[in-house]
Every structure is written in structure tokens, then in C-alpha cells.
């Protein structure tokens, strides 16, 4: 499927700030059978000189600074992507570091008692793939999708307690459950094309890859209780949200910040 994505981030301040440094992880990946056909990043009102590098998870990172005092910065990203009809699990095996990283708890996906209790009933002995799928469905059934119940800092154990959340929370909970069963799992940041989301309701999406020996990566979406299909656009992967935020930045100054994000996805 060929999709067009427009992702506009606007940062405004009630007083001038300066020396702003920004990292952006928004370029659709060339991975899992997906291809990025075009990608453009523009900053307003001043056109910043944008640099690029690949981080150690293999994600494309764009980086720019803006030293002069300013009160508004907008980052307009447009991309065109050819999605994979079926997610390609890749062959091969994990590097020692991936094996370590994707099996160990993180701040967003801790390995506490509540998580293990939640995962316990869904374990299928000697069947990691079955276990992962069952866990994904369990997350889908136990957590109610609700915007505003959680925020960007919510962790998986909070989600169990609240019983509500958004895709980021569903993903963290599934990751935490898989890891406590020894199944390597990673966080996927991206987009989901769904015509019923438009205007204010369109946003970025997050789901989960699990690694099954002999199969490679399997991509599960606990928010919608399905596997990744041609409507999914992969952008970045990491241990959890903290590794892949769409934008990350620091600045100098004493000002109140307002963040606005608008996402539009169209099928071509």
C-alpha cells in the first residue's frame, strides 16, 4: 500500500528561548519489507541545517539546532511510503546486545510482580509464539482504549492498575509481559492508516515486535489485537518509548512550552 504522511510538530513558548537542539525520529524505515519513497523535513520560521545519523537500533535520526532566541518552532515532515503487504520477519538471529536489551526490563516496561501475575495465566509451555499471541490478546481484552487516562510517562505497571490507556501503554504492557517470560520484545513506533481516524484523532501509533527463534520477528499490535499488515508504517524500534520518541529536545531559557502535533495519513 502506498501512503502519504504529513506530520507537523509545533512548539511555542511564552518567552524567548535559545540554543534549542532537536532530534527527530520520523523517517519511515526501510525494513520488514517496507520502503520509504520520499522524505522531507522542513523547519519554520527559520530553515535549520538538518544533519542525519543512524542510531544503534538502526533508526534514522535527524538532528538540528537553533541557537538564536525564538518563541516558536515548527517541524513539518512529509513522507511517502510503500508498506509491506506482510511483515517480513527477517532471517538471522539477535546480536548479543539485542538479546540482552530486548529481554531486560526497562523503566516503561518493568518486571514487577503485577506484570508477572497478569501474564501468568496466558503462558503456553514451550510455545513462545503462542504465548506472545495469547498475551497480546490478553492485553487487548484487559485494557480499555481511552485517551487522556494516561500520559507520555505512564509505565506498564501503571497501566495494569488503571485498566485503561492508549497504544503506547498497550505496547509497553505487552513488552513487559513477553520479557518476563524470556521472549525478546521491542517497541515499534510508527503510523497506522485507518480512514476512521482523521483530523484531531489521527496520531502516531505504537506496537510490538517479538523475536521467536526459528521464525524471526513477529509483529503484534495489542491495541487492535492483530498482526502488522499493509496499513502499518514502521518508523523506529527500541527497548521502549524512551529510545524512539518522534521528537526529543533541550533548550535554554525560562519559558512555558506548548506542544502541538498534527498527523495526516492518506492512501495514494
Amino acid at each position: 500500500m502506498r501512503l502519504f504522511i504529513e506530520h507537523l510538530t509545533t512548539l511555542s513558548y511564552d518567552a524567548p528561548i535559545n540554543e534549542a537542539h532537536t532530534e527527530v525520529r520520523l523517517k519511515p524505515a526501510d525494513a520488514g519489507g517496507q520502503r520509504c519513497l520520499s522524505f522531507k523535513l522542513l523547519t519554520e520560521p527559520v530553515k535549520a541545517h538538518v544533519l542525519a545519523y543512524i542510531d544503534h537500533f538502526g533508526n534514522d535520526v535527524r538532528y538540528f539546532d537553533w541557537l538564536q532566541p525564538h518563541q516558536r518552532l515548527s517541524i513539518a515532515v512529509t513522507s511517502e511510503v510503500l508498506t509491506a503487504p506482510l511483515f517480513d520477519p527477517g532471517a538471522g538471529e539477535l546480536t548479543p546486545l539485542e538479546e540482552y536489551d530486548y529481554c531486560h526490563p526497562t523503566a516503561y516496561a518493568p518486571a514487577d510482580e503485577a506484570i508477572c501475575r497478569f501474564a501468568g495465566p496466558h503462558i503456553l509451555p514451550d510455545d513462545p509464539l503462542g504465548t506472545a499471541r495469547t498475551l497480546s490478546e490478553a492485553v487487548f481484552r484487559s485494557i480499555k482504549y481511552e485517551r487522556g487516562a494516561t500520559d507520555v510517562k505512564t509505565t506498564a505497571d501503571d497501566v495494569i492498575r488503571l485498566g485503561r490507556g492508549v497504544c503506547q501503554d498497550f505496547a509497553h504492557l505487552l513488552i513487559a509481559c513477553c520479557r518476563c517470560q524470556g521472549i525478546p520484545a521491542r517497541y515499534v513506533s510508527g503510523y497506522l492508516y485507518d480512514p476512521k481516524f482523521f483530523g484531531d484523532t489521527a496520531a502516531t501509533h505504537a506496537w510490538v515486535d517479538v523475536f521467536i527463534a526459528g521464525h524471526g520477528w513477529i509483529s503484534l499490535d495489542p491495541t487492535h489485537n492483530c498482526e502488522q499488515n499493509e496499513r502499518y508504517v514502521r518508523v523506529a524500534v527500541g527497548r521502549d518509548y524512551a529510545d524512539v520518541p518522534p521528537t526529543r529536545g533541550v533548550f535554554k531559557g525560562n519559558a512555558k512550552e506548548t506542544l502541538e502535533v498534527r498527523v495526516v495519513i492518506r492512501a495514494l
Binding site: 543512524i54 542510531d55 544503534h56 548479543p96 546486545l97 538479546e99 540482552y100 536489551d101 531486560h104
Partner: peptide
């Protein structure tokens, strides 16, 4: 052991591949 290396507090995964 991988555990010792990657679990070390001062291991910097950001440096992998650099």
C-alpha cells in the same frame, strides 16, 4: 558473560557501531 558487559552501569549502548 553478556550480562556483565551489557548490564554494566557504564556500558554505553549509544556507542555501538560508532
Amino acid at each position: 558473560p553478556a550480562e556483565l558487559v551489557f548490564g554494566a552501569r557504564h556500558f554505553r549502548r549509544e556507542m555501538v557501531g560508532v
